[in-house]
Nucleic acid binder design. Structure first.
Lengths: 151, 151
DNA sequence: AGGCAGTAGTTCAGATTTGAACCAGCACTC
DNA sequence: GAGTGCTGGTTCAAATCTGAACTACTGCCT
């Protein structure tokens, strides 16, 4: 415990920049989605993931892992989206205890309506401010961390 | 609204990687801090910022901006840290409405005790997985976004 | 001085998140 | 085919976050 490998200037700057930026961006996205459609960011992510999935449906646990929220948070959010008519629950045919979240037609339309504004923000603040090279470098770096954190 | 500039493969991959990674890392850090000292990540950040500040003290608003939380969240967290004896509140001498959050000696000791483990995680999952070049590239990219988001 | 817009913090209500406890169904063993 | 351990989701209580009032003080402007 005595020989801690502290972060040097460069490393600390990198960490702080990463941390602040991710929080600031999260905030901005949340604000935009709330204003545009009354959605939270996790809710949007759920819709987006489902839209990409085969048959527009996914298992709860799989979805939770993709969106990176706890199982209980997902249960809650799917409940909200269900109330809003954007998602439906079905019991999984192959596994009786499983639940499939299915994107409804209303959900598809909602996503189509909201996506442009959302992408706009992601682009304006993050993507379009990087060169192609930076983009690829960052992705590579993020992927390494992501992989490590997913075990 | 018809001509949305969607994200191409590379851009989408970058965005997804960034998003997932930041959430996963946040989760891991939160878990580590909770286990090691019963602190939340924002709480740790408050202590760390104060430790770096002249006289180990900072104005509430300034601190809130640094840590990237709402003013009310900071009020709450400072309350918690105060209960734990790690921080104290002082009224600002130059501005009667202002409040200074001051790190106590106990706060310093707590930070000294917790910091190594925290840095360890940041290093193990993020910093040490990047080359120096990647580190610098990422920092540059993050800084651009950060600056844009801070107006 | 007196008034007034703006800033600093707090309070408050409402929404969301998390981990732990829990129930049910699957899968494997003996 | 009963027993056992695991996995999938939900429920629950507690903690935290946010934005919207609200109060108090500052700094100008006249």
């Amino acid at each position: 415990m005595t020989d801690t490998a502290w972060l040097d200037e460069t490393e600390m700057a990198a960490w702080r920049a990463f941390l602040s930026t991710s929080h600031l961006l999260e905030r901005r996205i949340e604000e935009q989605l709330k204003a545009a459609a009354g959605l939270t960011h996790p809710q949007y992510e759920v819709l987006a993931r489902l839209a990409d999935a085969p048959d527009r449906q996914m298992r709860m646990t799989e979805l939770a892992k993709g969106v990176v929220v706890s199982k209980s948070a997902l249960t809650y959010q799917i409940g909200q989206l269900e109330k809003a008519g954007l998602v439906e629950r079905t019991t999984c045919p192959s596994d009786e205890r499983g639940v499939l979240a299915v994107l409804t037609d209303a959900g598809v339309r909602c996503l189509e309506r909201v996506a442009p504004g959302h992408v706009e923000v992601v682009r304006a603040y993050l993507i379009d401010r990087m060169t192609r090279g930076e983009l690829e470098t960052m992705t590579a770096a993020m992927r390494k961390t992501e992989q490590a954190l997913r075990q």
